[in-house]
Design a protein around this nucleic acid. Structure first.
Length: 273
DNA sequence: GTGACCACCTGGCCGC
DNA sequence: TGCGGCCAGGTGGTCA
């Protein structure tokens, strides 16, 4: 599924491909992707506008148009494709932005979980969905002090906390497993039990894992396959996620799979006690 | 305020 | 071969 590295890969690819293209028309085939605004208004606000910039915060893509921002979350299987308008519409392409040059940007989502919000440019970060987000690991304000303030009273598993986007933005199930492995922390350990050194390790390893994943174009496993012709390579660098029954790269103990808060969770029972 | 649980969705996989 | 059930999982909503 798209996490921060995959979304960043999509962002940078789209940036190079569709900047300054002008929207001529929009076809909406599944309206529930559009939030907080009706389809007519959604189309009205975007048609005639040009894409001036494409940003990212956490797992959200932010298309900056002339006077409005389109905030897109890919959720589980959302993808963007650029095709000629004459090409056949795939049954999973739910929203199509047709540009004046004859090309189109197509939002493809097999499971229809993705969302799109429109916001005024001066309200992008001061309204939801972005308002409630916590800090990315790259943020200067992401410190031991910040993380401790958020986690020291939490009586839930550390994995659950790291998946909480209001605390730690950008990590999803894959990368949380990897960060906890590198930090030698059991995913089921209560967050309140962590020490300063653990917070420091989590931040350091999150930055390391995400930077490496971004450099490799993200992770391509199971449901998250190539988007825009870009296929990530970080799956080759995974230590524990999807490695059930395989030997740990450090101690050779077999990787186990369990569930934490309903999420499939992979860990080394020896390294992550 | 916190934590647990469910709904949203569809394709793939497995057992019968 | 066909069918039913389960699983995958990010986020928002609801409830205790």
């Amino acid at each position: 599924m798209p996490e921060l590295p995959e979304v960043e890969t999509v962002r940078s690819t789209l940036y190079n491909l569709i900047l300054n293209r002008k929207i001529e028309s929009i076809d909406v085939y599944y309206i529930k992707i559009i939030k907080d605004i009706n389809v007519t208004e959604f189309i009205k606000r975007l048609v005639g506008k040009s894409i001036k910039d494409i940003k990212r915060y956490g797992k959200y893509l932010i298309f900056i148009l002339d006077d409005v921002a389109l905030i897109s979350h890919l959720r589980m299987e959302g993808k963007y494709f650029i095709k000629e308008q004459s090409e056949v519409i795939n049954k999973h392409e739910h929203i199509i932005f047709n540009f004046t040059d004859g090309s189109s940007l197509r939002y493809h989502d097999v499971r229809k979980f993705g969302t799109m919000d429109l916001r005024d440019l001066d309200k992008i970060y001061t309204t939801n969905p972005l308002l409630k987000l916590g800090l990315e690991p790259f943020d200067k304000l992401m410190t031991v002090k910040y993380l401790k303030s958020k986690l020291q009273k939490k009586e839930v598993a550390i994995k659950t906390c790291l998946l909480d986007q209001t605390i730690f933005t950008g990590l999803g199930n894959i990368y949380v497993d990897e960060v906890l492995f590198l930090s030698r922390l059991n995913p089921q350990l209560k967050a309140s039990k962590l020490k300063d050194k653990d917070y420091q390790n989590i931040i350091k390893n999150a930055i390391e894992v995400l930077n490496k994943a971004i450099a490799l174009g993200g992770t391509t496993i199971r449901s998250y396959t190539s988007s825009l012709g870009v296929t990530g390579l970080f799956q080759n660098e995974l230590n524990v996620h999807t490695k059930k029954g395989e030997p740990c790269v450090i101690c050779n103990t077999l990787i186990e799979k369990t569930r934490v808060n309903g999420r499939g969770t992979y860990y080394c029972p020896n390294c992550q006690k």
